[in-house]
């Protein structure tokens, strides 16, 4: 069996009376391409917050590459190889695109092995993403689609073991969604990074990932291959018969 990069065990996140994530367990193997879907408010983003140390779980355990990081701050997760993007792109607006990527390289990525030689500096990461020409442009001036790509670049600069993508395809055109999905595949295939991808555009996601986890009201409803999950009756019911799967 492949080596586990992230293992969440019985993770629960409670905000006051609201249980956003309810005893969710998940193991992500090295180089795996995994999708997380679920209706609005299913707890997808909160689960990501827990996986990346942004939110401390109320209970449960988080192990990254064999190290128990439960309760540690976000920068420790980053230094252990957990990188992420945010639902609304969070780039350093006043810094150039290149400086944004260099940021990851300087901190979380420092001392971590590069996925391949071409990823030695910020410029080569921007080239990989196809936005090398924008290297000197302040990130705040990039189009939203390019800011999303840049966020992936910042995360790649952190030289992660696992990349958590929170709706990177939201608000993109059909063609942009396709190229982003192809790029994510390359991240996995060429760099061997595990990718956990939350997406609202379920159809695209189902075509690209190898395994799907369905969250519903904070709980894990299904976990399996896209084909098996799409046929699951509970899943179809959770989506109220939406013909998306």
């Amino acid at each position: 069996m492949a080596e586990t990069v992230v293992a969440a065990t019985d993770v629960t996140v409670r905000f006051g009376g609201l249980v956003a994530v309810d005893h969710v367990s998940l193991e992500v193997a090295r180089g795996e391409l995994l999708g997380i879907i679920g209706p609005n408010g299913a707890g997808k983003t909160t689960f990501f917050h827990a996986l990346s140390g942004v939110v401390r779980p109320t209970s449960g355990r988080l192990v990254v590459a064999g190290d128990d990081l439960t309760g540690r701050p976000a920068h420790v997760f980053a230094r252990h190889g957990v990188a992420r993007t945010f639902q609304t792109p969070r780039v350093f607006r006043d810094m150039t695109a290149e400086a944004n990527v260099r940021f990851g390289l300087e901190f979380a990525g420092r001392g971590r092995p590069a996925g391949r030689d071409a990823f030695a500096d910020a410029r080569s990461i921007l080239d990989f993403l196809g936005i090398g020409a924008a290297a000197g442009v302040p990130a705040g001036e990039l189009t939203p689609a390019r800011q999303r790509l840049l966020e992936i670049g910042m995360a790649l600069g952190a030289r992660p073991r696992v990349l958590l993508l929170d709706e990177v395809a939201a608000g993109l055109t059909e063609a942009e969604v396709e190229s982003t999905a192809a790029l994510i595949r390359r991240v996995r295939d060429e760099l061997g990074i595990a990718v956990v991808w939350i997406e609202h555009a379920v159809r695209v996601l189902m075509r690209f990932v190898e395994r799907v986890v369905v969250l519903h009201q904070g709980r894990k409803l299904a976990d399996g291959t896209p084909g098996a999950v799409a046929a699951d009756r509970d899943v179809v019911e959770a989506y109220l018969g939406e013909a998306v799967i």
Partner: peptide
């Protein structure tokens, strides 16, 4: 610029 973002990129903000 964005403290939480800097944290997720490995900066010990505190």
């Amino acid at each position: 610029s964005d403290e939480a973002r800097a944290e997720t990129l490995g900066v010990g903000a505190r």
